[in-house]
Design a binder for these strands. Structure first.
Lengths: 256, 256
DNA sequence: TAGTGGTCTAGACCACTGA
DNA sequence: CAGTGGTCTAGACCACTAG
């Protein structure tokens, strides 16, 4: 810690990273939320770089939730990420009360092999699949597919006709009559598939946070949910409160 | 629903997304973990696209944790993401037992304003900062900065000299003598800064999962941690088990 | 229709790794 | 040193939005 610190730049920072920093500071000082930036061609010219390089910087800032870009419209300053509660202790089962999820559809279907394996069902066996959508602050933030083995909701076989929201609600209702167990969540980074992207109002390939939740009763998995959250607009909170805002300082991570 | 579904492709899929799918299938069928792919110039030629386009596809696959690229070396098939337990109920305080974190250093420092605000300290007030590193399966997976207000560990002022791992351990030991409260976690997407990147063996700008943890006793924040996890190699698990593997099927999210 | 961001190209050079 | 991925350029065209 007693070393001289003058110009320890053996690696001249890449242009796009420097640009990112410059733009980031400009966002803090000269722009306000929702404001629209100059277009990419002009920004590139203004900074004396190729458009591709400028776009690399913008990509970073979008990844960090500071910018929002929409084709045909422009680049705007994004509001701070919204805190989205995941796995709050209240909803022991999915679909409890008014938890922010809206049931869209439901149908029996054969799940992906990996899902079948964790559910403990046969790989060719159909399970109830429920599609839900989550909206927060007027914006769609997540799309979910919920897999429920038939054995988890035995009384449900009678309902076959009304594929749609009604059926989805029926599955959720049936789940909520069961004895609750505990939940296990996992979060990882992914990219939005075409259908998810459409539902989240993003382009395919956009970064998403994939939350897989396992509802466990005894030693078996009673239900499995795979939810994809918009990574640009969401901060997922676990354990308690849903909208305590931490850390949206000048830069994304900690400052030295 | 009942609509004909033949060639509903009003938007011909971008090349790089199609490429991503093709490569993804190739990874599933023709390559095994750790295997090295042909170099980018050859792949681009083989698929008849520009190198930049090929790289867009590779970026996606890297984002999904399917590939690992290292400059000067090549592109290899990544192993499945490792499950990393975050906020397991066991460690009520950070630094308990052998929790996978290695203390690196500690010093008093003025934290970023946003951190000071959640800690409830003055913006110019110095707090204990502890840097830790987390290793899993021999690879560094996370870098952390832990902020501990002086008032949380009053008996510690005596220790001033030995900046380094010893001091870090002292702060953690002091914390662990306190009455435990509860934890609040939040996860969001970010990009690695220069120092984090170096510690995680990634390039600056690489996508990371930023986990902020608040330790709350009563109504005040006793400690705050900002940890950046490698997004490419990690799957963060909450609540329980640390290495149950779910869903690493042909594609990242759910399949239809 | 004009203007935006998204995709794509064909090249060049650089930084890094390992033999 | 040769070979790899990372950065950067200067263009072109496309898909989309909104007036």
């Amino acid at each position: 810690m007693g070393t001289t610190q003058l110009a320890p730049v053996p690696v001249p920072e890449p242009k796009y990273l420097h640009l990112r920093t410059v733009l980031s500071q400009a966002l803090d000082s000269e722009f306000s939320v929702g404001e629209i930036l100059p277009n990419e061609r002009e920004l590139a010219a203004r900074f004396g770089v190729a458009r591709a390089t400028l776009r690399q910087a913008l990509e970073q800032l979008e990844l960090e939730g500071r910018l929002q870009r929409r084709r045909g419209v422009g680049t705007t300053v994004a509001p701070p990420r919204v805190g989205v509660a995941v796995g709050a202790p209240g909803d022991a089962w999915p679909g409890a009360a008014d938890d922010g999820w809206e049931p869209l559809d439901s149908a029996p279907a054969v799940p992906p092999a990996s899902v079948a394996d964790t559910l403990g069902t046969d790989r060719e066996e159909a399970v109830h699949t429920v599609r839900r959508s989550r909206v927060s602050h007027g914006q769609p933030v997540a799309a979910e597919v919920l897999y429920v083995p038939r054995t988890s909701v035995p009384g449900l076989s009678a309902i076959d006709a009304p594929t749609g929201p009604a059926r989805a609600r029926a599955v959720l209702r049936a789940l909520n009559t069961l004895e609750p167990g505990h939940r296990e969540n996992a979060v990882e980074l992914g990219s939005a598939h075409v259908d998810d992207a459409r539902e989240l109002d993003r382009l395919p390939g956009a970064p998403v946070l994939i939350v897989t939740t396992r509802w466990v009763t005894g030693d078996r998995t009673a239900a499995l949910s795979v939810a994809t959250y918009r990574a640009d607009t969401c901060r997922l909170t676990f354990g308690e409160a849903g909208d305590v805002r931490i850390h949206h300082g000048p830069t994304a991570s900690h400052a030295s």
